[in-house]
Computed example of a mutant assay.
Amino acid sequence: MRKKYKGQLVPRFMIFLLGLLVMTFGVVLIIIANIGPSSWDVLHIGLYYRFGLTIGTWSILVGVAIVILSAILLKSFPPIGTFLNMLLVGIFIDMFLLLPFLQTPESYIGKIVMFLCGLIINGYGMGLYISAQLGAGPRDSLMLAITSITNWKVGPVRTTLEIVAVLIGWQLGGPLFWGTIVYSVLIGVTASFTLPQCQKLTDFILSKWHSHKQSQQIIEEYNRGV
């Protein structure tokens, strides 16, 4: 059972930030592999092709629209972590895409290897940021909003949102290849392994942090008594 955390905001934010960095690096590897990005990135890239700006900027703008829709459906604002996720992921996408050494491999085998590495890295990054319990991403927030007001199951809702994003992105000229389908199938399987591992790691880090803080308090109280 996953622990519920209260306080410990500093270490949780550090884990959250690291998770977003790792997750976004995986996303960018998948984009650069050029055999099919995730369904939402089909949309972001399609918007970039059609209207300019940057892929990261469109990730943020789409996130803003989704957060507003989620807030209307739930009649409440998402937690601060959702806004940070929306903003930082877009910034990190553009940051990683500017790295000169990240290039599409020439061989198809190289592209597949980069894609699979991106998938695994993306899964571990997702596990890290979720384990910090500072709020889900905007797209997950929309999924939860729809399920909460309709009582529909999470699976069909998530699948429907993914299909809608792909179709809109494809109509805008976004890259839809077999990798998009593989990602949609394997990301859930990957997350089922990475999420428990990352949660154990986070539990360990936060327990050590708590013990360290307690030890400091005991030492300070002792010194004051002396």
Rank of each mutant, 00 (worst) to 15 (best):
L61P: 12
T82F: 04
I55P: 08
T57F: 13
Y48C: 10
L99D: 05
P105M: 06
S76E: 14
D41P: 08
I30V: 14
I55K: 07
V62I: 11
L43A: 03
W58A: 07
L99A: 15
F96M: 05
I30E: 01
N85P: 00
T82E: 08
H44R: 12
F92S: 13
L53G: 11
R50C: 12
V89R: 09
M86A: 04
F96N: 08
T54V: 10
I55M: 06
F77R: 14
W40T: 14
I32E: 11
L53P: 10
A71F: 03
G90Q: 03
V28A: 01
I91H: 01
T57S: 14
P78I: 11
G81T: 10
S59E: 10
F92Q: 10
I45D: 00
I80W: 09
I80R: 06
L98W: 12
G110W: 00
R50L: 14
V42K: 06
V28Y: 02
I35N: 00
T54Y: 05
L74K: 15
W58H: 14
L29W: 00
G46M: 04
I109E: 02
I55Q: 08
A65P: 11
L73F: 06
I35M: 00
P37D: 04
M95D: 05
F83N: 03
E106G: 07
L87R: 04
S59C: 11
G56L: 05
F83R: 01
I91D: 01
I30L: 00
I55T: 14
T104K: 01
I80H: 09
P100F: 07
S107R: 00
F51S: 05
L74F: 09
S107F: 00
P37Y: 08
K75L: 12
P105E: 01
L74Q: 15
G56N: 04
T82G: 06
I55E: 06
G110T: 01
P78Q: 15
F51H: 06
I68F: 12
S76I: 13
S38T: 14
P79I: 09
P78V: 14
V64M: 07
I55G: 01
